[in-house]
Nucleic acid binder design. Structure first.
Length: 478
RNA sequence: CGGGGUGUAGCGCAGUUGGUAGCGCACCGCGUUUGGGACGCGGGGGUCCGCGGUUCAAGUCCGCGCACCCCGACCA
């Protein structure tokens, strides 16, 4: 319950973040280090994220399935880069039913291996392709440092795994799903993202190419908000995923995988939140509207509540909640629902009853400026418009903030300065050494090489001065 | 794994030279309140992180653990 002011974002951003998560009732710390409980309010947000993504997966021809949590250890040894990438963060089960296991079992950190194994059993012919399966699951990665939602030992996500007959198809799929993520982020979460390709260093262990959507948080740090991997034939060869083509020749499949996790909740918090707390985009908010009744005595109360009944009949199409707790003052409720990020608050008291109106308060515009009295005539339409406006305004504000904090770096000195508080876009020769040096000296990592067609040409590597054909973003990241 | 910090009521904290564990908020009851975080009165709630030691006596002193948070190295 919220009784004191939040730490402000400028005072201590990470403190602000933790307080928002806990006090907005999104999540709580679990008894195991690095683990969290997603509380009902946080889970409701996740369910809305799931709904929007799942809809898009289905529209693009995917189906859901569920693969097991436990994976034989040997599976992880079949793809060389995959082992090396994941070995340090695996949780291993060695005892079952009181007996030492013959082969230890890995708690999945991701499911390429076990799904690859199954695909090799299922896929025989080109007629079986493509296989387009997604699963909603939890995974475990033994991280050193954890943060609520952003990095926990266990997290929830979806992972899509597809197999195709040709490299082209698999590449198309990889980019199609990247587009799906970007569309979701921008149009549902109002989180502006940049699509791009990861550097060799930053790509997924076992992938040929990794693509990501990158979002800028309120402190200008970057957050990788979703990833899509083109796996080529790496996993097909490791797991023997083969099919007979039209010419009766045995071929390895081409596979992809792509994922978006509960980390995205962190992206929403840090993209839109302000010093009052969370601000949720209307399209994903568990409650789009909260009604706070106002009255001085029982007589007023019954008049107001009766009026609210009428108002509610116009709210059927929205996710709304009536806060009729009698033991709390309206002022307290205002603050609490602001902390929890509800996009629109309806204040309804005797004055409104008299005027046949309600007082609407926009979460994205603090204080009096965001309040507007609306007559209840066609209230549903007015509210729908308001919610749309809020959704759009959140996206605009976030986009503007991001664009203001991305700068082109002509020199390394400039880059160093830019990444102190923003993203630097720069020419990069493509060498891992330059990347590593920059990271070492500035703590900024490469985020992605933007897909944007406009950005073509040649320049000099911002670090070594060599001929460069790639532009890439550098920034500190979560 | 390095550096820093913190463990006392649900949360935030105080607890002096060692001497019967307290405050604020939250919670429960009653009443008055209610358009931007209400107030009064009454009440319930403790393995003082754990183990060992010193002492007549330990929340307090000593030793060893453990956990969590923050900052780094590593990562969705």
């Amino acid at each position: 319950m919220a009784e004191d002011k939040l730490t402000s974002r400028s005072e201590n951003y990470s403190d602000w973040y933790n307080q928002v998560v806990l006090r907005a009732d999104l999540a709580d710390y679990a008894p195991v280090r690095g683990c969290m409980v997603v509380k009902p309010y946080g889970w409701a947000l996740w369910e809305n994220i799931q709904r929007e993504l799942d809809l898009r997966f289905k529209e693009t021809g995917h189906v859901n399935a569920a693969f097991p949590l436990l994976i034989p250890k040997s599976f992880f040894e079949k793809e060389k880069e995959h082992v090396e990438g994941f070995a340090p963060e695996l949780a291993v089960v060695t005892i079952g039913g009181g007996e030492e296991l013959e082969e230890p079992l890995i708690i999945r950190p991701t499911s390429e291996t076990i799904i690859g194994y199954m695909y090799s059993k299922w896929i025989k012919s080109y007629r079986d392709l493509p296989v387009l399966i997604n699963q909603w699951a939890n995974v475990v990665r033994w991280e050193m440092r954890t943060r609520l939602f952003l990095r926990t030992l266990e997290f929830y996500w979806q992972e899509g795994h597809t197999a195709h007959a040709t490299a082209e198809e698999a590449q198309e799929e990889t980019l199609r799903m990247l587009d799906v993520y970007a569309d979701f982020a921008i149009n549902e979460a109002a989180v502006p993202v940049i699509k791009g390709r990861k550097s060799e260093t930053e790509k997924f262990a076992g992938a040929i190419n990794t693509y990501s959507i990158e979002a800028m948080m309120g402190d200008t740090k970057a957050l990788q908000a979703g990833t899509s991997h083109y796996l080529g034939q790496n996993f097909a060869k490791a797991f023997d995923i083969k099919y007979l083509d039209r010419n009766n020749t045995l071929q390895y499949c081409w596979t992809t995988s792509w994922g978006l996790s509960t980390r995205f909740i962190g992206a929403i918090i840090m993209t839109h939140g302000d010093d009052q707390g969370l601000i949720l985009p209307p399209r994903l908010a568990p409650y789009q509207i909260v009604i706070v009744p106002i009255y001085k005595n029982d007589q007023e109360r019954s008049v107001v509540m009766e009026y609210i009944e009428k108002v509610q009949s116009q709210l059927k199409g929205f996710r709304y909640r009536l806060d009729d707790r009698s033991e709390l003052t309206p002022g307290f409720k205002f603050n609490e629902w602001e902390l929890k990020g509800v996009p629109l608050r309806l204040e309804i008291g005797p004055k409104d009853v008299e005027k046949h109106a309600i007082m609407a308060a926009r979460r994205d515009i603090p204080g009096k400026a965001g309040k507007i009295s609306l007559s209840i005539e066609n209230l549903d339409l007015k509210i729908e418009n308001l919610l749309n406006e809020i959704q759009q305004s959140l996206l605009e504000k976030a986009t503007e903030f991001r664009d203001q904090n991305i700068h082109f770096a002509d020199s390394y000195d400039e880059l160093k300065q830019i990444v102190e508080n923003g993203w630097a876009e720069a020419w990069w020769c493509g060498s891992a050494e330059c990347e590593a040096k920059i990271k070492e000296e500035t703590k900024a990592t490469t985020r992605c090489m933007p897909m944007d067609e406009k950005i073509r040409g040649k320049g000099k590597c911002v670090y070594c001065g060599a001929e460069a054909e790639k532009r890439i973003y550098f920034s500190k990241a979560y």
